[in-house]
Nucleic acid binder design. Structure first.
Lengths: 155, 155
DNA sequence: TATTGTTATACTCTATAACTATA
DNA sequence: TATAGTTATAGAGTATAACAATA
């Protein structure tokens, strides 16, 4: 018996959306597509996706406490603790206690960290341009606008 | 010294996009936002995100070989092997060798598996409607259209 | 008492390679 | 030789709880 899993069937049971119209699945699949060339790039620098995200967040936002980094990099605090310790050991960033609230650890990027980002920037921009070319500049911007709005929603 | 990390600076070094305009990061953050209520839902059924994706793919596409499931559920084959074995042990799906090519294992959902999906469908649809309401129906559909196209791009 | 971050833990997923069976 | 899937393994992330230091 053929049946569409996207519509109510004869017995009128409600059914789930097709996986292509499931937002979490669509976001994940789209991300997998985009990540393929980026994973190649990061492998050359021998740096994980997570470390790369942390480094970019810290570069972008300047001196930052760890809770804020975890939020921005989509990582849990225990995961972040390990990653930041590893990045500090490699000299990519520094940690120092906040002078006004000594529970906090303030993280900053170092010149070595900035160099790592700079070293990957040309190829990263190349990938971005290739993506813009095959997907379309307008669609790309529309998508980024929608994602930016969605990521700030609090449901 | 203040500087925008999104534009070339005075020394004309090329720089990276802001993380909000990085497609992989924006996709991930948006997904985290959307997953918050869904994680609650899945925890009640005591099923992992990955198992849920596999179950939905198998329900949607019918009898399917594992390589195709891995692709559709964004999982590596070794991860899928374990997940499918676990879902089979719990009675949610069956495995049988393909009669025309016995290297392949064909996976199908069982009634118990369908029941699990059905049990979660009302709350899942509720979450979806809440999301549509706060994000907007048109934006939601535009976003899904863009993601659908992006996930099928081959860079 | 609440918050920030660390440590401990058990579990899961990732990534790769080696292997089996089949084509 | 190539493909489909399994197994093994090391490493990393997830998720939770317990803990220390500070507020």
């Amino acid at each position: 018996m053929e049946k569409s899993s996207n519509l109510k069937d004869a017995t009128d049971k409600p059914s789930l959306r097709k996986t292509e119209r499931s937002l979490p699945i669509a976001l994940l699949r789209a991300r997998e597509t985009v990540m393929i060339p980026i994973r190649e790039l990061l492998q050359e620098s021998n740096i994980s996706e997570q470390k790369w995200r942390v480094l970019r967040v810290v570069e972008e936002k300047g001196a930052l406490e760890q809770t804020a980094i975890a939020e921005a990099a989509c990582l849990l605090l225990p995961s972040l603790t390990r990653i930041v310790q590893s990045l500090e050991a490699d000299g990519f960033l520094t940690r120092q206690p906040d002078s006004s609230d000594r529970r906090k650890t303030i993280v900053e990027i170092t010149d070595i960290g900035r160099d790592l980002i700079a070293a990957n920037t040309p190829k990263s921009n190349e990938i971005y341009q290739r993506l813009e070319k095959s997907f379309g500049k307008k669609k790309m911007n529309d998508l980024l606008d929608l994602l930016e709005e969605l990521q700030h929603l609090r449901l």
